[in-house]
Amino acid sequence: MHQKPYILPFIFGILALICLTIAPYLVFMYAGIEKEMGLAQKIFYYHVPSAFSMFLGSFLCFIFSIFYLWKRDKNCDLWAACSAEVSLLFGTLVLITGAIWAKPIWGAWWVWDAQLTLTLILWLILAAYHMLHTYLEDAVQSARFRAVLGIIGFLNVPFIHYATKLWRTHHPEVVRGEEISLPPDMKIVFFFCVITFFALFFALLFKRVSLAKAQNELESLKAEI
């Protein structure tokens, strides 16, 4: 048996690479510089798409977790765990770039803004999912537990969203920087960056899945011997 040619990771990898070479050009050359926020506004082009990728990842984890419990297909568990891990990576990026954005604009590294808080709590849940993954022993049981946590964790998103929103409106002193209507050039660049990050997300996800599959193969081969 030879190393399987994984076609999808290759396609998404190429797509991500192409997008990644065009995106900086659009961000730095095409999009105008925002008057008030200056260059810090350009963080937005990578910050928000990262957040979208994070939510996409946790949503995929939720869907695959349901499918795992329903069909008991080992692959579903594998995909759920991998999308949670990639999602955790993007979540970390969102939090870091959020802090870097907040410092010049709001004057503090961290602001308890509703969206940022939502990201932080989701990140905590993803981190807990990751820890559960590493602290479990029995393979089949751990897959089931992961799926349960994947479902329970994602169901929490609407509650966190609603709670942080209510919480922030009760404390109006914090500056809110949402609902900026973008000029058309920025809008185009922003949409392109969203596509770029989705391509990047899938490229990393496929890569992660192929690693997990290789790991499984190695383990089963070792078990045979």
Binding site: L124, M131, L132, G153, I160
Partner: peptide
């Protein structure tokens, strides 16, 4: 109970999920 950390793992799972209800 079935993790390597036993009961010590419970808060790590429960608290992140509990945050919205705790806030409320």
């Amino acid at each position: 109970l079935n993790t390597r950390l036993r009961e010590a793992f419970l808060p790590l799972l429960t608290l992140p999920i509990f945050i919205p209800a705790l806030l409320a």
